[in-house]
């Protein structure tokens, strides 16, 4: 699972180093446990939400929703050691719900909040071209059904394994493979034909790859 501990910690807490210990602290209502949870997982979860929903989506409310659902489900958590995966699954579930709502709003020609979205003002000129390319990629992803979109994002952007992806989306591995086999060539074929994306498709910068 790609969730990692966030590098920045608002409160330096050295207790509850393992996920299981943190879960125990949360169940015991330790005063600082909630802050630790946020510090360790909020960045990764925010990233998952942004990658699932796209570059122009405000995800802070969605992130809060992930934690609210987590606290609601905490007493039923069977494997405290799998806290990261548990949170990741909730985030994907929240993202899926938001994608569905967004699709319904689109049917009625509404934006998420009923307003026409303005492009962000704080665009970094250096990465403007890269951000434009990513936006173009998500324009392509917007044409996919929600399941195919999530399969593509979680596999190609989040880098999940097939088995992790299957567990997260509650699909069989075979189904995940079939979906990937269908959606991957579709997305990249369109990306290659897109003016903003073509340069990123044709000459990958190996140095930027992690």
């Amino acid at each position: 699972m790609p969730l990692t501990v966030a590098a920045r910690k608002v409160v330096p807490v050295v207790r509850w180093q393992t996920p299981a210990e943190l879960v125990q602290a949360l169940l015991a209502a330790e005063p600082e446990a909630h802050g630790v949870l946020w510090d360790r997982y909020s960045t990764s979860l925010r990233a998952v939400l942004r990658r699932s929903l796209g570059p122009d989506t405000e995800v802070e409310d969605a992130l809060q929703e992930v934690f609210i659902r987590f606290f609601r489900a905490l007493p039923t958590l069977r494997e405290p050691a799998a806290l990261g995966s548990f949170l990741f699954g909730i985030a994907v579930h929240v993202a899926r719900g938001l994608l569905r709502k967004r699709r319904i709003r689109r049917w009625f020609r509404l934006t998420d909040d009923g307003e026409i979205p303005e492009p962000p003002d704080d665009v970094d000129p250096v990465s403007e071209q890269a951000q434009a390319a990513v936006r173009r990629l998500y324009v392509i992803l917007d044409d996919l059904d929600d399941e195919s979109r999530l399969v593509f994002v979680l596999r190609h952007i989040e880098g999940l394994e097939i088995t992790e992806l299957a567990a997260c989306l509650k699909m069989s591995p075979a189904t995940v493979k079939r979906r990937l086999a269908r959606v991957t060539p579709l997305v990249f074929a369109r990306a290659r034909n897109d003016a903003d994306l073509a340069s990123f498709m044709a000459a990958p910068d190996q140095g930027e790859r992690s």
């Binding site: 966030a6 909020s42 960045t43 990764s44 979860l45 925010r46 990233a47 998952v48 942004r50 990658r51 570059p55 990465s127 890269a130 951000q131 390319a133 990513v134 990629l137 190609h156 952007i157 989040e158 880098g159 991957t184 990249f188 990306a191 290659r192 994306l197 990123f200 498709m201 044709a202 000459a203 990958p204 910068d205 930027e208 790859r209 992690s210």
Partner: peptide, 15 residues
Amino acid sequence: EKAAISDLARQTLHG
């Protein structure tokens, strides 16, 4: 080339 756009999205859409 697929990895290029994937990496780009991963880096752009950070948390």
